[in-house]
């Protein structure tokens, strides 16, 4: 019995979302009176022993280069074997792009019940009940997993990462890796930008910005805050911004610490993608905009005047 945590990597580095699930998984293990172990696929340059800082006792690594890209078929096979080899009865993923691609496939292979999009620690006092967001953040469901092996994928930004002291034992896991049937022919990363689902702060723009040529003030604010940028659906549809920035019920769902909405009315479908944010700031010239009802702080005013001032004030605050 143990808790196994899948560690997601990109370009040979462990992703931020992985530290969150490591902390979370270690807590699940503690709660169940067992150990937390980690699984790393592919070649990674980071110091794996240091994952001990997150409460991990052992790191299993399948250091095979063909696992540096996610092929769900290969991953499912390798992860399922690692679960069996390590004797884990709980497996944890981040519900990020990799988790969404792989976790359910592993579940089907192991015939293990899965809850995706978990947002809290499981209740293990009587059975195994996991809380998750449903209806795109408009409600929660508590789901009981009734199989011997249980799988959770945790919504990014829903658990506080804590690093302490400790060193993990690193052990190579020998698993045969099949040839991939999926050939990756190009990878296009938007360099220098903070990935939206991992960002602590997100600055988002709606139709109130009037046109793509006006995005400069939003980008300046985002830069000052080291924030990722997002937009409402009509903005993505009109190609004012790339469609991967579209947040909402039919776009990306995010839960940053701070979400700043500029010229967005706050339609129910938009809120569904952002209402798990810890703090919401709305800047809108219409005092009746529905977004104010979902906001923590707001300014009723013209964003073209307010936003440059806001950037300037933040700059001053940081300098002082």
């Amino acid at each position: 019995m143990s808790v196994l945590i899948f560690v997601d990597q990109t370009e040979n580095h462990i992703k931020k979302a992985s530290y969150e699930v490591l902390t979370y998984g270690a807590q699940v293990a503690k709660q169940m009176g067992t150990t937390a172990e980690a699984l790393v696929l592919g070649t990674v340059n980071d110091d794996l022993a240091s994952l001990g800082k997150y409460g991990i006792t052992k790191v299993h690594q399948v250091a095979n280069e063909s696992l540096n890209h996610v092929d769900t078929q290969l991953y499912a096979k390798v992860i399922a074997e690692a679960v069996t080899a390590s004797g884990a009865n709980v497996l944890i993923f981040s519900h990020n792009q990799t988790g969404k691609a792989v976790a359910a496939r592993v579940a089907a292979r192991l015939k293990a019940g899965i809850v995706t999009g978990a947002c809290a620690l499981p209740d293990t006092s009587n059975g195994f009940v996991v809380r998750k967001t449903v209806f795109s953040g408009k409600a929660f469901a508590n789901i009981s997993i009734n199989s011997p092996v249980r799988i959770i994928s945790l919504n990014p930004n829903s658990y506080q990462t804590v690093a302490g002291e400790g060193t993990a034992e690193v052990s190579a896991l020998n698993v045969a890796v099949d040839a991939s049937k999926v050939k990756i022919t190009a990878v296009n990363k938007v360099s220098g930008e903070v990935p939206l689902t991992e960002a602590d702060i997100v600055v988002s723009g709606g139709r109130g910005l009037k046109g793509p040529e006006n995005w400069g003030i939003l980008l300046d604010l985002a830069k000052e805050l080291h924030a990722a940028t997002a937009c409402s659906r009509p903005v993505g549809d009109a190609h004012w911004r790339p469609h991967h920035e579209h947040v909402g019920q039919t776009g990306v769902q995010i839960a940053p610490n701070l979400y700043i909405a500029l010229g967005i009315s706050g339609a129910i479908q938009h809120l569904a993608g952002v209402n798990r944010s810890k703090v919401i700031v709305v800047i809108n010239k219409d005092p009746e905009a529905p977004f104010f009802k979902a906001a923590d702080y707001g300014i009723v005013g013209d964003l073209f005047e307010v936003v440059p001032k806001l950037t300037e004030e933040i700059h001053k605050m940081k300098a002082s």
């Binding site: 508590n142 009981s144 997993i145 209402n275 700031v281 300014i299």
Partner: peptide
């Protein structure tokens, strides 16, 4: 069937927005 719904819950309501005057952006910061 590997999972079952125990129950649903609605999120707690927000406390209400704190509005800051447009001429006092420093206060928001």
């Amino acid at each position: 069937t590997l999972t079952s719904v125990v129950n649903f819950e609605l999120p707690p309501a927000k406390a209400g927005v704190k509005l800051v005057d447009a001429d006092n952006v420093a206060e928001l910061v």
